[in-house]
Design a protein around this nucleic acid. Sequence first.
DNA 1: TAGATTGTTAATCGATTAACAATC
DNA 2: TAGATTGTTAATCGATTAACAATC
Lengths: 209, 209
Amino acid sequence: MRKENISDAVIRRLPRYYRQLTDLCNRGVVRISSHSLGQEMNITASQIRQDFSCFGEFGQQGYGYNVEELRAEIGHILGVDNNHHLIMIGVGNLGHALLQNFPFSQSGFTVDAAFDVSPAVIGTVVNNVPVYAMSELDHFLQDHPVDVVVLTIPQSVAQDTASHLINLGVKGFWNFTNIELSSQLPDVQFENIHFADSLLTLSYRIANR
Amino acid sequence: MRKENISDAVIRRLPRYYRQLTDLCNRGVVRISSHSLGQEMNITASQIRQDFSCFGEFGQQGYGYNVEELRAEIGHILGVDNNHHLIMIGVGNLGHALLQNFPFSQSGFTVDAAFDVSPAVIGTVVNNVPVYAMSELDHFLQDHPVDVVVLTIPQSVAQDTASHLINLGVKGFWNFTNIELSSQLPDVQFENIHFADSLLTLSYRIANR
DNA sequence: TAGATTGTTAATCGATTAACAATC
DNA sequence: TAGATTGTTAATCGATTAACAATC
């Protein structure tokens, strides 16, 4: 029974399923039951079946799930076969590290360009991605619609940059600055990587063991 | 009414409160009610009061909360005044970026050292943090107990490295590799930054807008 | 066929929100 | 004092788990 509104809890488990299924594929496992999958991932079989049932019927009674097929289905749900386009704003240490190491294409993203204000990086090419001056950003977006902008810029300019990009039609942000961004428009999506928040929860758990 | 077991949902909101209160402090705001705080953070006043009540009574009827005081209390709960010690394993692009830019001390962490296998970085000092050879790790840990190890290493060696460190007594991991780490020992804490999972949830939301 | 396992409905559990007496 | 706002109890909502008929 396909559901209309999928809860955030379910969505956040999808990438984990996808990861686990990719691993099972690589290990040559052909079929798996919700029970075995649950054991490997430390979640209940019930939850797995409930989660999947939000999107369709991918299994077979008495058999379980075909690993490769299920992986493809979840990948499809996540949009990995959509060839999303992405640019990066801010090629400092972190931006550079992501361009260099993060396998964007494995998540279905093509990195079209990066932008920065520093003359030291403008004009360089990092892992096949050209770095342009910030002044060229508006013009670039006219010809190259992008689905996601990665924000690896200083906090101080984060909201202004985001607002500017929203005005230019950008609807998706992968935000690495440790602030909550906001938008007037309702259909703009922010996904945050809050390093400090993450470390502080670890700090809490250590301090209150 | 202090609670025994605090739910993960509550814990994950604490850093956000801390961040918002720090901001309010900087803006010179002296007092705030749960209602106003909720408006700024887009959560209900009820939830805020429930959350705080897990840890104690920090407000005053008819007045609200003293911002600076509340910030200090939450910081204390999070352990920012515990002076936790931390080392990093893996000084590649990402590790280097974190050492260079991430304000560990603001979260109450002292970075004692970093370790890598590459001769290119061994012996260097990044932002006052010395980089040692991996072979010196065991010896180092004998003299320098650490609370948290940052894992910015390739996936392929992540679980083995973690297991080794757990045997040496390490109880906290800030894991940047995109795999689920596990431990036999029950009191070992893992906090994961799964870049790919994060981007995939954004991909989902864009694809299913 | 018999055993296994699904998708779904019902039951339970936990988290969020509402309400309100207490009190600054 | 009167108004405001807390901390907490009760009500609601949503998410997880259990149960089971359907069926491969």
